[in-house]
């Protein structure tokens, strides 16, 4: 077991019924590394990162997160989930709770942090995502961009070592994308290990250490952002890039 890799995925296979959605995926992520995963819809990129915190179970191969193998042991799954934060495309905030209650829920109920301490921590993270003044509002009263920033703060309140982002800006109006990306850039600069499924190529160029292109359940190409965008090797990558850049 390698000490320097915080996530090690080897020979990962996953099926949805007969559909082979992930085919022999191998991926190692070093602590502090930022990885952007892109690819056409249905390529398995979301499924891949959802396997890392076991929102999807895998059918073959191994996933080791921070030295803990992800198997069917509830204890291991719980441990990994407390180390791995996730941000969803649809925010998935809890609509019946205020922003602050959303943030302190997991620290209080999972880690047993005293309420006052959890609130202090939550306010600190809300400050970091630049919405401390919305703490007592309900999610339904916030804009999409604000909701997504709350969702990021909620994940950070568990003080995870790894953050997974599943198309965090795809459900946002264009004018709100920037505010969310800025928070993500901040996070990257502070050394968080990040795996982002996104088509925000500006973000990828700016923070990614590696860009991974997936298609039909396979990793097709993997490179530094500069090399990936300026000199793609595979035909499918070229086609994809020409489609999303639009010229």
């Amino acid at each position: 077991m390698s000490g320097k890799h915080i996530i090690e995925i080897s020979h990962l296979d996953k099926y949805f019924g007969d559909f082979h959605v992930l085919k022999n995926i191998n991926l190692s992520v070093a602590a502090g590394e930022k990885i952007v995963i892109c690819g056409p819809s249905g390529s398995g990129k979301s499924t891949l990162i959802r396997c890392i915190n076991h929102l999807e179970s895998h059918d073959g191969g191994d996933i080791i997160v921070d030295g803990v193998p992800l198997d069917d042991k509830v204890k291991n799954i719980d441990h990994i989930r407390s180390e791995v934060g996730m941000v969803f495309q649809q925010f998935n905030l809890f609509p019946h709770m205020t922003v602050l209650e959303n943030c302190i829920l997991a620290p209080v109920w999972v880690k047993g942090v005293p309420r006052s301490e959890a609130e202090a921590l939550a306010l600190q993270y809300l400050e970091r995502v630049r919405i401390p003044d919305q703490a007592d509002k309900y999610p339904g009263q916030l804009s999409g961009g604000q909701q997504q920033r709350v969702a990021i703060a909620r994940s950070l309140c568990m003080q995870p070592r790894i953050m997974l982002f599943d198309e965090p800006t795809s459900a946002l109006d264009p004018e709100m994308i920037k505010e969310v990306l800025e928070v993500m850039v901040d996070l990257a600069e502070q050394g968080m290990t990040m795996l982002c499924v996104t088509h925000e190529m500006g973000f990828a160029r700016r923070v990614a250490d590696r860009v991974i292109f997936m298609d039909e359940g396979e990793i097709i190409e993997e490179n530094t952002p500069t090399a990936f965008f300026d000199n793609p090797q595979n035909e499918r990558t070229k086609l994809f890039l020409s489609q999303i850049i639009g010229d």
Partner: peptide, 25 residues
């Protein structure tokens, strides 16, 4: 479904997530 997944992703057990997130709604 996202509510269930959000509960899981922040580490809530089944019963806690039912009690705190799903059932109240």
């Amino acid at each position: 479904k996202g509510q269930y997944e959000a509960g899981k992703s922040i580490g809530l057990s089944y019963w806690k997530s039912m009690r705190l997130i799903i059932l109240p709604q």
